[in-house]
Each structure stands twice: as structure tokens, then as C-alpha cells.
């Protein structure tokens, strides 16, 4: 699942050379538009609905993985 999420992240921010350390603070392309696209792609890929509170928590790659995993576990 981490790999899948990383692939989605790469495609929405349009940068290929990122790894699991990526975050909104160290990657300027991860802007609000990328965040929106990320949410839509994650929701479609994993068949989940992310709540606004969860979306605002997702500031780093590990945040994203944690939120999506928790969501899938529900």
C-alpha cells in the first residue's frame, strides 16, 4: 500500500524523485491543488471517503499512509 500511495503522490505532484520522507514542508510542488488531486485519487483508488479533518492532517507521506490505513481498517 505504501508503494501505491507513493506512486499516486508522484503523479499528482508531478515529481518523480521523491521517497517516503516527502512532506508539504520539503516539497513545494505539494501545494493545495496537489493536495486536492491527491485526495481525489486516494478516494478513488482505495474506495474510501476522507473527511476534511483527515485531509488537513495529511501533511507528510507517513501521515497519508497512516490516515489511509486507518480508514481501510474501519
Amino acid at each position: 500500500m505504501e508503494d501505491q500511495i507513493l506512486q499516486i503522490l508522484k503523479s499528482v505532484i508531478g515529481v518523480d524523485d521523491i521517497d517516503s520522507s516527502v512532506s508539504q514542508d520539503n516539497c513545494e510542488q505539494w501545494d493545495s491543488m496537489a493536495q486536492l488531486n491527491l485526495v481525489v485519487e486516494l478516494e478513488m483508488e482505495f474506495d474510501i471517503t476522507l473527511e476534511p479533518e483527515e485531509i488537513s492532517e495529511m501533511r507528510t507521506f507517513s501521515d497519508v499512509v497512516r490516515v489511509v490505513k486507518a480508514k481501510k481498517a474501519q
Binding site: 486536492l36 485526495v39 481525489v40 478516494e43 476534511p52
Partner: peptide
């Protein structure tokens, strides 16, 4: 409406 309020999307982003 979630995406409308979060990002002012006037069309459902899933339809892109």
C-alpha cells in the same frame, strides 16, 4: 460539496 467547501470545486473532481 466536500470539495466545493474545501477547494471551491464547482464540479465533482471525480468526473475529471
Amino acid at each position: 460539496w466536500k470539495f466545493y467547501f474545501l477547494s471551491q470545486m464547482g464540479l465533482n473532481p471525480r468526473l475529471s
